[in-house]
Design a protein around this nucleic acid. Structure first.
Lengths: 347, 347
DNA sequence: AACGAGTGGTTAATCGATGTACCCGCGAGA
DNA sequence: TCTCGCGGGTACATCGATTAACCACTCGTT
């Protein structure tokens, strides 16, 4: 039904289609790209025979000629063997792919260990002309990637605070503050006064933003964080940070985590230490990963709609790649989702 | 230091390198591909100037000429909006990428909604010549994909039971039985007699294998499953299945889940129903996802080393793509990892 | 009748790398 | 001296699609 036995093994080329349709190869190309001037009749005939032969234009050939690969790159940097922020990326990819697939674009995924490898990889991807653009995740302080990508002539979008008067546009994660502030307000309303924060790696932009908002929100209420600990987003360090915070002389009654994965680990650690959540300790995450909804207790968290951010990033990038796409804007800010892991402060 | 200001905007081509090194383009190509006969001196000189100019062979051009893209496809089928088996894929991808990266291969990732879309996608990828091969995840009963990929002339590996005298080789997930049997033995040893099973979608091959092993293991001990419920791997259905099992008149004292994500949801559901794990209910998962190690209680599960399976799959596939790689074999079978979510059966 | 303007295509150059066939120069053997 | 062999490299066709330039033909005008 699809590809009715062409010549054995060999894939059909544009020539075969042209011959079968009784036109020149140029006509076939024009029919597929909606360029040139073909009568509706021939156009249809060409498309029909192409379908019949199961032909699609060779991606490498088209890329060579037009210098456009219809492929975008996503480079994920995973600190160590353990990837704490991982489900986060799944969501992101889901959002991106949702925009790419209908437009025939592909997503080239790479995992790298560190900053050096990441830069080398971008250099190679650009030099080899493998992709048309790249999504840069996790904006860092003084992020070198926008400049690099610009130098390489690769369109890019950065997932981070939108202001950065930088070389490439940024999307999403705008109201970082809003989510954390809401979370703190929620905790304060529940009577918590001793709140700790388990942050991500210091070099990440959102770490600073969230942490800043956290401190500011407490200060507004005339309070100071019990303590702030940085992690590398790994489960191990999340557990370690939690244990350290719980061992404090003036133990916090609530902990805010920079992401859900760590919050889950933290809840586990607290429970293992004999504390009940939320009776003895309230826990707030960040990301609203699917799992949090089903744990016991269900995780209170900040929904930043990663999937939607991914979709937006993809659209912005496609637009920069010359695709006819209306980028659109992010409609919602991060929002606190109150569930069961937060409760009144113990007296 | 890397690419010292070539002509504005334009990337260097093989011609530029040839000119700069005072040789023909053919020589440059040969130097990069270790073919032909070049003196060690010229070879070195060519490579040096290439490095200096920051040149790498254009992937599209090379692909067009040699009909090899150095790109592999991974198509992930996610049932609905929620992707239950998700962390599983992250692990898999990590394993695959670990083998691809050092060889300069790329991984083209696609998400699809259903079987029809998946097949169409493979047709397109093959027709466009976008990839050299594909990793087929989640072998299904009467899986149509091996035949399809063979017809398309695309090398592939199937993640599933190794025997299938099929069109493409399979890797990993061999001793599905072993893991489940071990889990059941563990539960029996703890005194459990009423054990339920929360399975995955019926069409998946491993669902049958694991379920078969589960039933067989119980039967050997003269028992029968309390009940077996199928799910679509989503969190929602995992919770629903758990609640249904716990509502049974003769409530099971232990539940075995087809993967960790569902096991976590199940534990949550049980706890919410007022049961304590493992005192009132023992829970066993499958996959050994990182998170399970940090929950409270820590999840007893079957480690099938997804990451290693991914790496092996990649190597097998690379070998089929003509790359000089020793596939190697999977050294370990799935193994039960006993942690805290299983305990003695309540009297 | 001759010309301009469409309409509906075709011809041929081109993208960048690869690989086959070929060529040159030199030393050795006859 | 002629030639064979060979190390060391070059010339050129080629992969499959895209696209600018061009051509043939038909009308409608003046």
């Amino acid at each position: 039904m699809t590809a009715p036995t062409g010549k054995p093994g060999r894939r059909p080329t544009i020539k075969a289609v042209a011959a079968a349709a009784g036109v020149s190869t140029a006509a076939v190309s024009q029919a597929f790209n909606d360029k040139g001037r073909l009568s509706a009749g021939t156009r249809r005939r060409i498309l029909d025979t192409a379908l019949e032969l199961g032909w699609s234009p060779s991606a490498p050939a088209a890329a060579l000629r037009s210098a456009r690969t219809r492929t975008l790159a996503l480079v994920v940097r995973r600190p160590t063997d353990v990837l704490g922020a991982d489900p986060h990326f799944s969501e992101l990819i889901t959002g991106i792919e949702g925009e790419l697939a209908p437009r025939g674009y592909g997503l080239l995924l790479h995992l790298v260990a560190g900053a050096r490898e990441e830069n080398v990889l971008y250099e190679r991807l650009a030099a080899e002309g493998r992709v048309d653009g790249a999504v840069l995740t996790d904006a860092r302080a003084d992020d070198p990637r926008p400049a690099l990508l610009t130098r390489l002539g690769l369109p890019a979008v950065l997932l981070g605070a939108p202001d950065t008067a930088a070389a490439v546009p940024s999307v999403g994660l705008g109201g970082q503050g809003a989510g954390v502030e809401e979370a703190v307000a929620h905790l304060l309303a529940l009577g918590h006064r001793r709140v700790g924060y388990v942050a991500g790696p210091e070099e990440l932009q959102h770490t600073r933003l969230r942490l800043g908002a956290f401190g500011a929100a407490l200060r507004t209420a005339g309070l100071r964080p019990v303590a702030v600990l940085h992690t590398d987003f790994s489960e191990v360090s999340a557990v370690a940070a939690t244990e350290a915070l719980l061992a404090l002389p003036d133990r916090p009654t609530a902990l805010v985590y920079a992401n859900d994965s760590m919050a889950v680990c933290g809840m586990g650690a607290a429970q293992r230490a004999g504390l009940r959540v939320p009776r003895d300790l309230s826990v707030v995450g960040y990301d609203d990963l699917p799992l949090g909804r089903w744990l016991h207790p269900r995780l209170t968290t900040v929904d930043q709609q990663v999937q939607r951010v991914g979709a937006l990033a993809a659209r912005v990038l496609l637009a920069r790649c010359g695709e006819d796409v209306e980028p659109g804007a992010l409609d919602d800010r991060p929002r606190l989702v109150v569930r069961e892991s937060t409760g009144p402060a113990p007296r």
